[in-house]
Design a protein around this nucleic acid. Structure first.
Lengths: 145, 145
DNA sequence: GTGCTTGCAAACAGTTTGCAGATAG
DNA sequence: CTATCTGCAAACTGTTTGCAAGCAC
């Protein structure tokens, strides 16, 4: 989705729930609406601090958690690394993660729904979401080697 | 693989690298060789403490990290929850995670290799491993509802 | 004006590290 | 005998929480 349209959509959704649209929140929404690079909380914090020198991690996390509860941001959690966020496509989708430069990209393909159905029927689980990550070397890092 | 056979295989692999086979390590290997329930470090620690009251987290983690370096244990990291381990099938394979009772199970199906090939060719990545988790309600938790 | 939000600092949880004493080989 | 391992405690990192002051509405 177009980042600007997504930004306006996020504002509208916060407004509907009567959450306050502070300048700090608007700036964070703007970053998350264009988050195809899947930034971490630290990366978001650092960009926001340029505009708002008093910006704190607490504020970043509180707003992100608000959006998570609303289902409007996808959190990609890792055990070692810090979490990364996608506010443009908040629904589960597969990712490519470069093991050298650590960048996170979307894939062009989706997890086939038939596979989900097969797992559901063989296991008896009522499957609600999934997480699929591919780890490897991105084209640029292959050339560096 | 049969847990007893896997246990002996792990002992042999540590022996080959001239790591010392302390009683604490053997007990941990024994648990990990039969880890179809994907225990966390805390769960492993608690079971080990029954046999070795002086057992510490440091020891558990140090041995797990040794096995990780050797590629003999699969670590399933989560951002909120603690990490879980599989020493029986140390290679990547899809998991089912119950969102109610939080148990982790293996699936009967594998991620199709054709899908990996497709992602690799459309993205140009040299893919080395993957992670696939399905979240949902297990059959038992569906009945409780 | 009201009460949600910010900003700061302290708390928190899981994991890692450092070091002295213990022990496998 | 000696290098590695254990066990303890402190350090570390990313995230969460509590509270007083600030500001959106």
């Amino acid at each position: 989705m177009d980042p600007q349209a997504r930004y306006e959509e996020l504002i509208e959704k916060l407004h509907q729930r009567q959450y306050r649209l502070t300048p700090q929140r608007l700036a964070l929404l703007h970053l998350l609406a264009a988050s195809e690079n899947h930034p971490s909380a630290t990366q978001l914090f650092e960009k926001l601090r340029d505009q708002y020198p008093t910006m704190s991690f607490g504020t970043v996390y509180k707003t992100i958690n608000l959006l998570k509860e609303m289902g409007e941001v996808l959190e990609l959690g890792f055990s070692n690394d810090d979490n990364h966020y996608d506010g443009n496509k908040p629904y589960p989708h597969p990712h490519l993660i470069c093991t050298s430069c650590h960048k996170i990209s979307d894939t062009e393909i989706e997890l086939p729904q038939s596979l989900v159905a097969e797992v559901s029927s063989t296991s008896g689980y009522k499957i609600t979401r999934n997480r699929l990550d591919f780890y490897g070397l991105c084209p640029q890092c292959q050339n560096k080697a």
